[in-house]
């Protein structure tokens, strides 16, 4: 992955507009957050292979970045995004890494289902 280039990511997002796409969205502070006394709660959520369609998709902010995808009946949102990659399969991988390089948030889009 490389540090997010806003213009590049925006054009990749545009390429997914109004299509059936598969979404991976997650955020976590780690299963060991409480054990290591880094936090009072281990908090995380993820959806893998959510099927969505969005008519508007925007990346905004300045290091870290935010992304919002506007669907017919709702929204997808992520903040804290720092790095991106468009892989060989054309999937858009966005992630937010903390100062230790640990993944804290991810938003990924693909035309085909993500591997289970």
């Amino acid at each position: 992955m490389n540090p997010i280039e806003k213009v590049t990511v925006q054009s990749v997002l545009d390429g997914f507009l109004n299509r059936e796409v598969y979404l991976h969205l997650e955020t976590t502070n780690g299963a060991y957050a409480v054990h290591r006394q880094e936090s009072k709660m281990a908090v995380g959520a993820y959806i893998r292979n959510g099927r969505i369609r969005f008519g508007r998709g925007v990346i905004t902010g300045d290091r870290p970045y935010r992304v919002g995808l506007k669907m017919e009946l709702g929204w997808v949102y992520a903040e804290g995004l720092t790095d991106f990659e468009v892989d060989q399969e054309g999937r858009l991988l966005l992630a937010g890494h903390d100062e230790e390089g640990r993944l804290a948030v991810a938003l990924e889009l693909s035309l085909n289902p993500f591997e289970l």
Partner: peptide
Amino acid sequence: QMGRNMGKPFFATRESLP
């Protein structure tokens, strides 16, 4: 697959991690 550590400096992605 859902590990948070990606190496330091990080070299894995959510998709390459497994």
